[in-house]
């Protein structure tokens, strides 16, 4: 009755060198041709070997939705659970087994609608999970109803007269809930996406990545106006820690603050006065300003909004257990006899 589970992840030095192919499962990928999910899967599979974690110590957990098929396609442990609840399962697994590397794959419906509550609480606990939220601003699996991130007035199958509700901004939610790592990337920019996933996976604590993902069937071109290759540099702001905020084909434009309001500085000759990005601010004031920037009024910020260190939930729980064990040798018979007892002979 001994455990066959390795207590800890193997040391990187003991690992065989893994490649992208090692993380490709034998399952046929069944997303619609042209779906943005393919790119996210590919970048993930490319990135995973770089983590130097044995693949048996990696787990992907998902809920329900197109994105949640993801675990079937990655050759690690995987759990395709029920709608909205991936984070609960991941939280239990990580708390029980802190040595595992646990990813959660979710979507805008799964993570922000039916599972919104769990997202908040996983973030405030700072449990060491990497959460990737595929935001296509539509319900794809159920064939085209509006989602909690669909823009106001959007016409869909379930809103033929246009929606009458405001969308959520996932990054704003993550910041509000105290997530220690918050980032955004986009399916079309494969290099940026791979780098962002890598940074998120390396973060200790909750890491949240919103990926702008195109659903070419039910919401095609949702991000095309700013995310396509030819306009990307002009219409997106690539956040780089410690650097002034610049964008444009030749990085000629900048962003400065006027009070609390960001302003575009066209053809900014000098970096003076431009905002220098700092994702490590204890109080995410800057991140909260950036999150309000959107196309067409601003370039869309992309990259790491926040990255700070804090004790993780799973680690704190383990510490309490270890401390309790160190303090008192567990003696169950003594526990049963604690309090008042009496003898009958």
């Amino acid at each position: 009755m001994t455990s066959t589970v390795s207590a800890n992840g193997l040391l990187a030095g003991d690992l065989p060198v893994l490649t992208r192919k090692d993380f490709v499962s034998d399952q046929e990928v069944r997303w619609c041709p042209g779906c943005g999910d393919y790119s996210i899967l590919a970048q993930m599979q490319k990135m995973l070997p770089e983590l130097h974690v044995a693949k048996e110590n990696i787990v992907f957990i998902s809920g329900i939705g197109c994105s949640s098929r993801f675990p079937y396609y990655v050759e690690t442990y995987g759990f395709h659970s029920i709608h909205g609840r991936a984070l609960t399962i991941a939280s239990g697994l990580k708390t029980a087994r802190p040595e595992l590397k646990v990813f959660v794959v979710t979507g805008d419906g799964d993570g922000l609608s039916i599972g919104g509550n769990h997202l908040l609480h996983a973030m405030r606990r700072n449990i060491d999970l990497t959460v990737v939220l595929f935001n296509n601003r539509i319900y794809g699996l159920t064939k085209g109803q509006f989602s909690p991130t669909s823009e106001f007035g959007k016409v869909t199958k379930s809103s033929p007269y246009g929606t009458t509700e405001q969308p959520l901004n996932p990054i704003r939610i993550a910041l509000a809930a105290g997530a220690t790592f918050v980032a955004r990337s986009v399916d079309r920019d494969t290099k940026h996406l791979e780098e962002t996933l890598f940074k998120a996976a390396q973060h200790k604590g909750i890491s949240f990545v919103e990926v702008y993902q195109n659903c070419n069937i039910f919401n095609d071109g949702a991000y095309a106006a700013f995310a396509e290759k030819d306009v990307r540099q002009e219409r997106m702001l690539f956040l780089e820690d410690g650097k002034p905020m610049r964008f444009g084909n030749n990085r000629e434009h900048g962003i400065r603050l006027n009070g609390f309001t960001p302003e575009v500085v066209h053809d900014a000759e000098s970096d003076d006065g431009l905002i220098v990005h700092d994702a490590t601010m204890a109080n995410p004031l800057l991140a909260n300003i950036l999150v309000g920037m959107d196309y067409p009024n601003y370039p869309v910020p992309i990259g790491v909004f926040r990255s700070v260190e804090a004790p993780t939930y799973d680690e704190l729980v383990q510490k309490q257990v270890d401390a309790a064990k160190a303090k008192e040798k567990p003696d169950f018979d003594a526990l049963l006899r604690s309090g008042e007892t009496w003898e009958v002979s």
């Binding site: 455990s3 957990i61 759990f79 984070l87 609960t88 939280s91 239990g92 697994l93 595992l100 769990h118």
Partner: peptide, 13 residues
């Protein structure tokens, strides 16, 4: 979430 976490722990052995 309570049962979800327990399922996660069961999955973790």
């Amino acid at each position: 979430a309570a049962i979800g976490a327990a399922i996660g722990a069961a999955y973790g052995g």
